[in-house]
């Protein structure tokens, strides 16, 4: 392979790896904008992954797979929303618990289906995979370079780009989006304006959870090509949480953040051994080290508009003022 081809392949692999991160990041941005910090991204992605897999496996339909994944992510988020918004419990602990629960539930269900079916029969059919796996758009995909770069991705990849652009418009230009930000920044003020704080929180936590669920479905259906494996998400939800900070709560900046982290996670496969020979385990650390650096630098810079929504982590209790 020539260097140019290698570079192209690397970029393509980076895009593949960045999509689930981007889903997780967008979901969490929406949640944090409502003033809730949900550490359960990993758990919601797991729920989306297993239920997306189940939907595809049982109904043999890509639409059902995605619907199931979205609903499962939402269900996980609903538990979180009920406990933190209505029952006002600690957000950190509830989010962590959601991760423990989601991880356990996904691995459990995965093992049960594998046990209850004959070996080698638990996979997603080609019919479903043809819809979700990277597309072949005929002539468009055959254009050198550009075809590979732009016209040969999964439908979920195109959707996530549309999603992040429309989320950016929603948050910055629409009335509801601005209300949402008011809820996240200062719930008491939003409440005084006549905005229903709980309603806004519920709706956006649930939607965010659904989006995380789609990211999970991408992992089980596209990254793993429809073969269920235990511990399939493997920390991507945590990276997504860090990406929220990296992209300073902006859905469009999140695209670039996810691309960088996607690239970091596949970099090892594309660096020729004879140039730099770094052990694989040290390479796997890279995204996490970069995240730490990002955390440090973003806290040193401290720009006002690039901060976490001020209401994040604190539950709103109207009577307490």
């Amino acid at each position: 392979m020539t260097f140019a081809q290698q570079l192209l392949a690397f970029f393509y692999a980076a895009v593949l790896a960045s999509v689930p991160l981007l889903y997780g990041t967008l979901g969490e941005i929406l949640i944090e904008k409502s003033g809730n910090l949900n550490l359960g991204v990993e758990g919601m992605m797991y729920l989306g992954a297993i239920f997306g897999f189940l939907g595809g496996f049982i109904f043999d339909s890509a639409a059902m797979a995605l619907l199931f994944a979205f609903a499962a992510g939402m269900a996980g988020a609903a538990i979180y929303a009920f406990i933190t918004v209505t029952l006002k419990a600690n957000q950190n602990v509830t989010g962590l618990t959601l991760t423990i629960f989601g991880t356990g539930a996904a691995n459990f269900i995965g093992e049960i289906i594998k046990d209850s079916h004959a070996a080698g029969t638990v996979f997603i059919s080609d019919k479903v995979k043809n819809v979700l796996l990277p597309l072949d758009m005929g002539i468009l995909s055959d254009i050198p370079v550009i075809g590979k770069l732009l016209f040969s991705h999964s439908i979920l990849t195109y959707f996530v780009i549309i999603l992040s652009v429309s989320m950016s418009i929603y948050l910055n230009r629409s009335r509801h989006g601005l209300n949402l930000r008011a809820v996240g920044e200062n719930p008491a003020a939003a409440d005084a304006m006549g905005i229903s704080v709980s309603k806004y929180k519920y709706i956006h936590i649930l939607l965010g959870g659904g989006i995380c669920g789609l990211g999970g479905a991408y992992v089980s259906l596209v990254t793993a090509v429809g073969n269920w494996q235990p511990n399939i998400i493997g920390g991507q939800g945590w990276i997504a949480l860090a990406l929220v900070i990296f992209s300073s709560w902006s859905p469009t900046r999140a695209i670039f953040g996810a691309l960088i982290f996607g690239a970091l996670s596949v970099l090892r496969l594309y660096i020729p051994k004879n140039i730099i020979d770094i052990p694989g385990a040290l390479f796997s650390m890279l995204p996490f080290i970069v995240t730490c650096l990002v955390l440090i630098f973003s806290s040193i810079k401290q720009k006002r508009e690039h901060q976490q929504p001020a209401g994040c982590g604190v539950n709103f209790f109207r009577e307490e003022r």
Binding site: L37, W238, I245, P279, A281, L282, F288, I289, T291, S299
Partner: peptide, 30 residues
């Protein structure tokens, strides 16, 4: 970093988990 710059400790401590965990893998393989 928390006391100096107010760096978010929740995510920072979390990321440090993975770094040291992969370091053990590195020691085991190397």
């Amino acid at each position: 970093f928390k006391t100096r710059y107010g760096t978010n400790e929740t995510l920072f401590t979390l990321m440090l988990n993975y770094i040291v965990l992969y370091f053990i893998t590195y020691l085991r393989e190397g």
